[in-house]
Computed example of a mutant assay.
Amino acid sequence: MLIRYLVQSVILVTLGVILGNIIAETNILSRLTPVIKPLCRASNLPEECIISLLTTLVSSTAGKSELAAFYRGGAITGREALITTVMGTFPVVLGESLMRVQAPLAIVILGPVVGGIYILLNLFSAFIQTIWALIYSKVVLNPRAISAENSRSERMSMTRETVRKGLKASYSTLKKTIPLLVITIVLVGFLLDHGLMDIISGFFDPLLRFLGIPGECAAALAGQFIHYSVGYAVLGSFLAEGVITRKEAILTLLIGSMIVISLIYLRYSISMYISLFGRLGLRIAVINYASSMVAKLITIGLVLWLM
């Protein structure tokens, strides 16, 4: 599992950095002006940030790597990079729900009611993160000039020379990024396999007790450590047998997602952000994690209020 993710991360980070540097060397952005211009005006973010947001719909790692390439190249500021990563939460969750079939699996295994509500709550949690990042960027950032459309010859300026420059710039970045990424992922993976996971689970135990979640649901939480579909299957069987209510199932899924997010940040995200953005990466990781936890707690509060 660790080796597979490590290889996947290295490939996606490499592709993202190369893509970002090639885009920085060309006029490709001018061809996308009709698409990104409204988003730039709505957020006060530069075109490069919007391009990376669109990329995260396909691959979160590639989109963030692309963003890091723009940041290291001086095209965007650290604040703009930070805001963009928070704002990208909804595109990431939307893309993962659709492209990694999480939504169909949840609906099939948990049933259309519980599965549908859970997927919508996940999207809601991600959406409010994107919204408050959008509001913050609109308040604190000054509008940037949006490039006008260029001539046809300028828009088609993907030449061997620009690609060569992009690859050259990528090499200097990847030479520092990839070793740090590999070392950190392996180190944190070792710690998680030797007791750190128990500490994380214990951290959320008071929340489980506070919400009155039945002890049987601990099996579903343990299943989510293995794969989200395992957690779905355990809860699906509990629902079918009447062991837990729909509300308890949804609360368990939301708490489980908080634990999984914590593990993902410790095992992968922190190392990726630091390797991509340097010292800024730790700040990005902390703020994104805090944003995710607050959004999940708001969502849990909504469930307690309405169900």
Rank of each mutant, 00 (worst) to 15 (best):
V163K: 03
V182H: 06
L221E: 02
G88P: 04
A42I: 12
A220K: 09
V108H: 07
P206Y: 11
I50N: 05
F90T: 02
I259L: 11
A81L: 04
V230F: 12
L282C: 09
A133K: 04
T56L: 07
G236W: 12
I185Y: 09
R209K: 15
V113G: 00
Q8Y: 13
L6W: 03
S262N: 07
R31Y: 04
S262I: 00
E25F: 01
L120D: 00
S229Q: 11
S237K: 12
V188R: 01
A285P: 10
A169D: 15
I28H: 06
L181Q: 06
I107D: 10
R164D: 14
C217W: 02
Q102M: 10
I107K: 09
S125V: 01
I213M: 12
L123N: 06
I287C: 02
I259E: 14
R164I: 05
Y228S: 12
I298L: 15
T55F: 09
N44C: 05
L263G: 15
P34E: 08
V163C: 07
S9C: 01
D193A: 15
F70H: 01
A240Q: 15
I50P: 02
S59T: 03
L266C: 13
V35G: 09
A81T: 02
I83V: 08
E66T: 00
L2H: 08
N288M: 06
L15N: 02
T130C: 11
A290P: 04
M158K: 03
R152G: 07
S147Y: 03
V140H: 10
S172T: 14
S201I: 10
R41N: 09
H194N: 13
V7F: 12
E241L: 12
S291K: 06
